[in-house]
């Protein structure tokens, strides 16, 4: 895991430290993340938005039928964690922790897990 090139200077107050650290974070993210991992991150963002939308609808408007909410929300959460696991297995920064999983095998596992997840989601949905 390669440390970033730039080192932020310590600021006087903590808030400016946080803002500068956040800027560093965004900059470091843009530089150090491979393009394919960014596609994964975009997918993750979409799933998060969809899940949050369903949760807000459930909390504010109605939670009937509860099983449909659980199925839809569970679909978002499940897809999110599966994709996050896939990201960890493919990202060069963290790939070293997986000794016997190659990126191709990671993709195959990801597809298998997602299909099983979607099968259960549609069974529970209606």
């Amino acid at each position: 895991m390669a440390p970033p090139k730039k080192v932020s200077t310590t600021a006087s107050s903590s808030t400016s430290a946080i803002t500068s650290a956040l800027q560093d974070l965004v900059q470091s993210y843009k530089e150090n993340t491979p393009k394919r991992v960014k596609i994964i991150d975009a997918f993750l963002l979409f799933i998060v938005l969809s899940g949050v939308a369903q949760f807000v609808y459930c909390a504010l408007i109605t939670n009937y039928p509860f099983n449909a909410f659980l199925a839809g929300f569970g679909s978002s959460i499940g897809q999110f964690v599966l994709t996050a696991a896939f990201r960890a297995q493919v990202n060069p920064a963290t790939r070293s922790q997986f000794t016997i999983i190659s990126p191709e095998r990671a993709f195959a596992d990801f597809c298998f897990g997602s299909i099983v997840l979607h099968f259960f989601v549609y069974n529970f949905l209606g």
Binding site: F43, T62, A68, S76
Partner: peptide, 28 residues
């Protein structure tokens, strides 16, 4: 049920996005 449309939409969109993502990944 009509009150469950957001959930149907959520699940369907997740599946669609998954298929799209797989395509993108394999193509790139």
């Amino acid at each position: 049920l009509s009150s469950a449309w957001p959930y149907y939409l959520g699940a369907l969109s997740t599946s669609a996005a998954f298929v799209l993502f797989c395509a993108l990944w394999l193509l790139g």
